[in-house]
């Protein structure tokens, strides 16, 4: 990828808008793949975390080991995980699934605890009543426990999706197409003099993306929990 450095005046950090307009279709492509990489692993991670969290809640003795293992997973530096995923799973280095898989691991690590704690937030007498009224275990999970756990899970999803936006950027440094590449470009163009516009653009788009995704989770939570806004009259 060749990017021609513009004249000296436009190297001011504030010229990121011009930089964006000059490379619009390319930058939008980066934004789109960044979005995709931020969202899909969280959704897949949640789908995996739901049964794991349920197990951790249902069989209390599994809670400590599950939380320790996922806690350790979360502390592995992202760049190391990106590199480790292909050999462990027998993929090519630079397989397109390498980064999504690593990000899914992080999301699972974060969300298992959230799901287990969300399920623990369901009042005991509510679960008892559901059982006594004749809900089967799966019916009870999807119709009673999960809906009531939504606020706690949504709070965890906000953290997961926002932290994913920043971890995805790191994947740009190993050559994946996303907003992280704007930083690489910035560094490449910074010889001999510092050239800030792509770096600032990358930061601005990452923050905007994080804010938008976070708001979407908040909105989704509101739509799913009308009962939370009902207060004693």
């Amino acid at each position: 990828m060749t990017v021609l450095a513009a004249d000296g005046a436009s190297s001011s950090p504030l010229h990121f808008v011009e930089y964006f307009l000059d490379h619009r279709s390319e930058d939008l492509g980066l934004l789109w793949s960044h979005t995709w990489l931020s969202v899909v692993p969280v959704i897949v991670g949640l789908l995996i975390a739901l049964p794991l969290g349920w197990v951790a809640r249902r069989h209390r003795w599994t809670y400590p080991p599950i939380m320790s293992i996922t806690g350790v997973l979360y502390t592995i530096p992202s760049i190391a995980l990106f590199v480790l995923v292909p050999p462990i799973l027998g993929l090519d280095t630079l397989d397109p699934l390498q980064v999504p898989i690593a990000l899914t691991v992080y999301s699972v690590a974060l969300l298992v605890r959230v799901v287990a704690d969300g399920l623990a937030s369901v009042p005991d007498e509510t679960v008892q009543a559901a059982t006594a009224l004749g809900f089967r275990p799966l019916e009870r999970f999807f119709k009673v426990e999960l809906p009531i756990a939504v606020p706690v899970i949504a709070a965890g999803l906000r953290v997961a999706v926002v932290s994913n936006v920043s971890i995805v950027a790191v994947a740009g440094t190993i050559g994946l197409s996303n907003l992280g590449q704007l930083f690489t470009q910035g560094f490449q163009l910074s010889t001999p003099d510092a050239y800030y516009p792509p770096i600032v653009l990358g930061i601005v788009l990452c923050v905007l993306l994080a804010v938008v995704l976070d708001s979407l989770v908040v909105l989704l939570n509101r739509l799913l929990t009308p009962w939370r806004r009902a207060v004693a009259t």
Binding site: P123, E125, T126, Q128, A129, A130, T131, A132, L133, G134, F135, R136, V144, P147, I148, T225, W227
Partner: peptide, 28 residues
């Protein structure tokens, strides 16, 4: 579950479903 659906059950703190309206709680 079939046995329980044939038996009404009332507990101390009612144990209503907080996420359901009153009418839907009753119609459970």
């Amino acid at each position: 579950h079939e046995l329980r659906r044939r038996i009404g059950y009332v507990i101390q703190h009612a144990g209503l479903f907080p996420h359901k309206t009153i009418v839907d709680n009753v119609a459970t």
